[in-house]
Write a protein that binds this DNA or RNA. Structure first.
Lengths: 196, 196, 196, 196
DNA sequence: CATGAATGAGGATTCATTCAT
DNA sequence: GATGAATGAATCCTCATTCAT
């Protein structure tokens, strides 16, 4: 889960993310990634088997960035029924703020999930999406603690993540940036939906 | 709003949607669209200036399909504070069921919004997304009728649509299809979030 | 030699000339000629077998325009040894002024002679270039009358026409337009070269 | 002025020239140039941004070839009033003989000047045509030395070059090749025109 | 490890031409 | 005669990928 990347790989990943944010997967040729990351094409092919491989690994890289961030946020002290609501708020606020600070990661993941690559990835790694595991663990905790209404764990996940992602999407692509207040309003509404 | 398309255009649009669902925008060359829609490449270029133009018009086409469907569903008899909850359920159930029946439209729209095309489209047409207008009208009605808690209209929109779209996305791409029951559970949870 | 063209044909020829001046042969598609001449593509193909045919006929048309103009200029009263110099001046002045007034014809002919079409034309019609016949007749007259130094008739032709055409070319394409005075200077110099 | 071209570039230029002589600019697809120069299409696009770019650079290449040849011909020993006539003869004889030996360069330049490319070139490089500079320098020398009649420098240029180019053109495209004698006759006639 | 010249399959697009109306 | 929708071969160009240095 915590693969270490070399400096060159980081460079390549960052350039790729930034270009993909602007131009999309297919508007971003390998040659441009090479130029932007100050590396020769040959070098890219030294580290990555193919463009598909680069994108697939970029996906892992991005997920790791997200996971690393989310993980070290809420789970450091024990979650109880009493502090769950508070943790819930913090959790999603952090989640949103992470992506607003890293729009290129968000954009990449969005494109990835909406593309045939995702299927390819699932076939190859049988893996699940977004930071599903971390999020699910947190939400299931809420269910076990009886801090959240009984409901399908998967629907709970869909419900929370869906609204939050849509907010981020609108913020990044859309004309209307959201205020702190609006973000809190959304999270509050989500909480209203699931609280006991 | 209700542009009429010729038979040939419909053919081309349908083939394009279906191919894009499988292979994505950029995995779908014009030549394949031509073959699938049983016309020559030249004919496609007779109707559409370029691939970009085809995709942009396909977007309008898709939005129209959605709008047409949603519109004729809930607004035929007056909405009151008393029947709003029921209408709310019906509205979203229909919305979800439409996309589950037309995954190629959903997939296309998803890709479109996550791609640089959307920005291109906004610049060209200053238009708004999804069936924003219809949905917003319905939700704002709920706010005016005091059937929904006071909140930012835009957050309300984000909250509802986000979860719903995420559900559809998971259903179409994901391994787990949702049961009727799960869908109802989601809509119920959304309603919990916004009801007074 | 004096073919009559229908109104439609004239229209097509004129539009073609004007477009070719701007964009060249190959920058001028049939569809544009059709649009510019307010005629459907089908109609063009009713009058002309192919684009090659159109261009070949346009060549005849252009040559006729030139011939018609030149012919009715100098030969109406008899040429003598005494008035030859004067006629020489008039002849070339008219020649130059014609092309400066009809740059699209000049440009078309230039392109035509510099292109593989000319060879095609020669093979098909065994014909000779520019208004060779008229010009040669006039120059040979000068030779017979002993108004011009003895020299190869063909070299005489090359010498005169070459300078004149080059002047026109520079005027039309070049940055420097020529004054009346400069034009006279050129013709005078040509005369110096050939006079006895 | 004396750019060095790589072996590959020379190869491509030569093949292009030869093909263009036969088929013209637009009858010469990149694929054929690639085949003729024994490189892949990709390689051509490695060296040249586009077909336009190739043609524009081919123009520079051709002009350089001409310049190189002309320059090292007449200017090695001082020009005086006494030897100017002799130099004049040599100069133009060399000029003509160069192009007769390199018809593909001549044909290319002719097509180039008669095409929209020339305007494109002027806009891009503000440059002047043929080996204008070398020729002008030589002719102006004649004017200063009083070896040539007083006249507009530009008309002098037009007068000499025009006839010479027209001769070459007729030789290359035309049915009638010129004899040594005829060529001398032409140059002599030009000299008659300008001598004091 | 790193480079970047070379490759060529594949894709978007153009445009001369046909033909049914 | 006139139209213009339909065709598809031909063209320009891109870009993932290889490989010799």
């Amino acid at each position: 889960m915590n693969i270490q990347y070399t400096h060159k790989e980081e460079q390549i990943f960052q350039s790729a993310l930034s270009l993909i944010l602007d131009k999309g997967f297919h508007g971003t040729p390998m040659s441009q990634i090479a130029k932007a990351s100050q590396v020769s094409i040959g070098t890219i092919y030294h580290y990555f088997e193919s463009k598909d491989d680069l994108i697939l690994q970029l996906f892992s890289y991005s997920k790791n960035k997200v996971s690393a961030f989310i993980t070290d946020s809420v789970f450091d002290d024990p979650i109880t029924k009493e502090n769950y609501e508070e943790k819930f708020m913090i959790f999603w606020r952090r989640f949103i703020s992470f992506y607003l600070k890293h729009p290129s990661i968000f954009s990449f993941l969005e494109q990835f999930y909406a593309s045939p690559y995702y299927e390819m990835y699932q076939k190859k790694y049988c893996a699940s999406n977004y930071s599903e595991d971390t999020i699910n663990r947190f939400l299931n905790e809420g269910l076990s603690l009886n801090a959240i209404r009984k409901m399908s764990s998967h629907i709970l996940y869909t419900f929370c993540l869906g609204s939050v992602i849509f907010l981020i999407r609108n913020s990044i692509y859309g004309q209307k940036k959201h205020t702190e207040n609006q973000i809190n309003q959304l999270i509050q509404t989500i909480w209203n939906g699931v609280k006991i």
